[in-house]
């Protein structure tokens, strides 16, 4: 893949945090077998933000799941933070989820019974750390929600919930942040706030972000866009405009 311009302090890191080699993935067996990925090789470089796009059923979510170690690949190899996770045990994958990767989802997936602060502290506590209040509050302040720590998710707007989810993902300072349609359930204003937040994390802290989206505007905020079609990489764009993305997407769907 043509490496996206990886500006910032992390430029020149030797190991890309996510590398996929000839990854294939199929569900089911026999007549009903579905090929979700067919020999995909892709590298997501450190300190860059890559959007993965494609028509429905193109395999973009599967790609994200395989790259994050949530799904096992049928063939090929997956390297996460330099570690081969193709045959990793559940305990190894659990460790990776704690230290190396963070997740943000379309539906926020906060735990309804916990306050914003408790939700943010949860990954730390699951990892056996005793989170300091200050760490948690800093993480919330970073997403502009310093004053909402005591609120339960149902007392927050969608955009606020998504920002809590980002704070929760970032509190462990993961090598890679995986985002699955992070703006999919938000209004345009909230979506813009979330995208700006991600941009700042990439530029200021050199965060690596891999984002699946079907929204050309969201994709245009990324450094690079990878297009998938029928489980294969169909195209790539560097720093595209929303219009360029939309045009490529229409062509793929057509």
């Amino acid at each position: 893949m043509r490496a996206p311009a990886a500006a910032g302090p992390h430029a020149g890191l030797p190991v890309a945090p996510v590398q996929l080699y000839q990854v294939s993935m199929h569900y089911g067996a026999g007549e009903t077998q579905v090929q979700a990925l067919a020999g995909v090789s892709v590298t997501f470089p450190a300190g860059s933000w890559t959007a993965v796009m494609g028509p429905s059923g193109s395999g973009k979510s599967t790609l994200l799941h395989c790259a994050a170690g949530l799904d096992r690949v049928s063939a090929g190899r997956v390297l996460l933070a330099g570690q081969d996770i193709t045959h990793a045990t559940d305990a190894e994958l659990t460790r990776l989820r704690r230290r190396t990767v963070g997740f943000v989802f379309q539906n926020f997936n906060l735990i309804g019974s916990l306050s914003a602060e408790q939700n943010v502290a949860l990954p730390l506590r699951l990892a056996g750390a005793r989170p300091s209040r200050r760490d948690v509050q800093t993480a919330l302040a970073d997403v502009g929600l310093a004053d909402r720590g005591r609120h339960r998710p149902r007392e927050l707007s969608g955009g606020q919930q998504q920002r809590v989810a980002i704070a929760r993902a970032m509190v462990m300072r993961p090598s890679v942040l995986f985002a699955d349609e992070p703006t999919g359930a938000l209004d345009t204003g909230s979506a813009r706030t979330v995208l700006r937040l991600l941009r700042r994390m990439v530029d200021a802290a050199g965060q690596t972000v891999v984002m699946v989206t079907h929204d050309p505007v969201a994709a245009a905020s990324a450094d690079a866009v990878v297009f998938l079609s029928d489980g294969r990489i169909a195209d790539r764009l560097l720093r595209p405009s929303a219009a360029q993305v939309a045009e490529r997407l229409t062509r793929l769907e057509g």
Binding site: D90, T94, R97, F103, I111, L122, P123, L126
Partner: peptide, 15 residues
């Protein structure tokens, strides 16, 4: 769903 989320956030099986 909730239990799966805990796993996603780094919860181990023993946890």
């Amino acid at each position: 769903e909730e239990l799966a989320l805990l796993r996603m956030l780094g919860g181990s099986r023993p946890q």
